[in-house]
Amino acid sequence: MARGMLIVESRPSSEDRRDEFDEWYVEVHMPEVLALDGFVSARRFRPLDGDGPYVSVYDMEGDDIGAIAKSMFAHARNGGFQMSDAMQFDPPPAMRVMELTTDLARAV
C-alpha cells in the first residue's frame, strides 16, 4: 500500500477574519477532506512569527496516491466542499501531492 500526503498552504482573506478562517478550516474543511477515500489523517500548522501561510498536511494511504489526489480534486471542482470566503483565493492556496519514498525513525 502506498502512502503520501497533500500539502496545502493557505491564508485568511483578511486579518480580521482569521478566527472565522481557523474555525471553518478545522470544523468544516478538514473533516470534509478526511471523509474522502484514501485520506487518513490531517495536521495543521501556523507560522511562529505570524507571517506566512498556514500549512495543512493530509496523510493518504491506498493503492494509487495519484488516483486519490485526482479524486479529491474532482470532488472540489464539482462543488463537493463547503468553501468559505474567509480563506484567501487570490492568490489561491498552494497545493502539492507527495508520495512517500523513505520512512525512518530515530532509535530510542
Rank of each mutant, 00 (worst) to 15 (best):
D85A: 10
R11S: 01
F45N: 07
D19C: 06
S56D: 06
R44T: 11
M98C: 13
D22C: 03
V8P: 12
K70V: 03
D16H: 05
D19L: 02
V26G: 02
D51L: 02
E9C: 06
A2W: 09
G79F: 01
D19G: 00
I65V: 11
Q88V: 00
E15Y: 04
G50I: 10
L36M: 15
R96K: 13
E9P: 08
V57A: 11
D16G: 00
V8M: 07
E9R: 09
D19F: 05
F39Y: 15
A42W: 02
V97M: 06
H75A: 08
M1W: 02
S84Y: 08
L104Q: 01
G62T: 06
R43F: 15
S13P: 07
M30Q: 14
R18V: 12
Y54T: 00
M5T: 08
F21D: 04
A86L: 03
V55Q: 09
D49T: 08
P91V: 05
Y58Q: 04
L104P: 07
P12I: 13
H75N: 14
M1C: 10
P53G: 06
P92A: 13
R106S: 03
R17S: 13
H29S: 04
E15G: 01
S84L: 05
L104C: 05
D64F: 03
S71N: 14
D37P: 15
L34G: 10
G50L: 10
N78W: 01
S14E: 06
Q88L: 15
D103L: 05
E61F: 07
G50C: 11
D51R: 08
P92E: 04
V57Y: 05
M95F: 02
G52S: 10
V55A: 06
M30T: 10
F73C: 00
D22A: 00
A74Y: 05
S13K: 06
Y25I: 07
Y25V: 12
V108C: 03
N78Q: 10
S14R: 06
A76Y: 01
Y58W: 03
I7W: 08
A107K: 15
I65K: 13
D90Y: 13
D90R: 06
E23K: 04
E32H: 11
L6W: 13
T101N: 06
P47K: 11
H29N: 09
P91D: 01
W24M: 04
E20A: 05
R106I: 14
G66F: 04
P92W: 07
R43Y: 14
L104I: 10
V40C: 00
A42L: 06
R96Y: 12
P47V: 10
E23P: 00
A105F: 14
M95P: 11
A2C: 12
L34K: 07
S14Y: 00
A35R: 13
E99R: 05
E27I: 01
A94E: 03
P31F: 07
V28Y: 05
L100S: 09
V55G: 02
E9S: 07
R3M: 12
V40R: 07
E61W: 01
T102H: 15
M98R: 00
Y58V: 10
E99T: 11
M87F: 05
D16F: 09
A35M: 00
M72A: 15
E20N: 01
F39N: 14
S14W: 00
G79L: 08
G50P: 08
P47F: 05
M60W: 02
E15M: 10
